[in-house]
Amino acid sequence: MQIDDIDRRLLRHLLAEPDLSTTDLAARAGVTSATAWRRIERLREAGILRGQHAIIDWRALGWEVEVSLRFTLDKTDPRAFDEFLAAVREVPEVIEIQTFLGRVDVRLNVIARDMRHYQEIYRDRILTLPHIADIESLMLVSTIRKTESLPI
Score class of each variant (00 low, 15 high):
G51A: 00
D82L: 14
S68I: 15
V88S: 09
E96K: 15
A87W: 06
A54E: 00
R89F: 01
Q52T: 13
R79K: 07
L49I: 09
L85V: 11
I95E: 02
A87H: 07
P78T: 06
L69C: 12
R50C: 01
V91D: 03
L85D: 11
D74I: 05
P92V: 11
P78H: 03
A46Y: 02
V94W: 08
A87K: 14
V88G: 06
H53A: 07
R70G: 15
G51P: 01
S68Q: 15
E90M: 07
D82W: 06
D57T: 10
L73N: 09
A80Q: 07
V65F: 04
F81W: 12
E64K: 15
S68W: 15
W58I: 06
E83M: 04
V88R: 08
P92S: 08
L61I: 10
A54V: 14
G62Y: 03
L49S: 01
T76G: 07
I48R: 08
D57N: 12
I55L: 12
H53R: 12
A86G: 06
A87I: 05
E64F: 12
D74C: 04
R89S: 06
E83K: 11
F84D: 02
L85S: 09
E64M: 15
I48M: 08
E66V: 12
A54P: 07
V65W: 02
I56Y: 12
W58A: 13
G51F: 00
T72S: 10
V94I: 10
W58K: 11
S68M: 15
A60D: 12
D82V: 15
I55A: 13
D57P: 06
H53G: 09
I55W: 05
E66Q: 13
D77C: 01
D77Y: 00
I55T: 13
F84Q: 04
E90K: 13
I48Q: 05
R50E: 05
G47E: 02
F84T: 02
I56G: 04
A80M: 08
F81Q: 10
V88H: 09
P92I: 12
T72Q: 10
R89A: 09
F84A: 03
G62W: 02
I48N: 03
A80P: 06
E66I: 06
V88D: 07
A86C: 01
T72D: 07
I56D: 09
R70D: 15
G51D: 00
V94Q: 12
H53Y: 01
V88L: 03
V67C: 11
E90L: 08
D82E: 10
F71K: 08
V88N: 08
W58H: 11
A87N: 09
P78M: 03
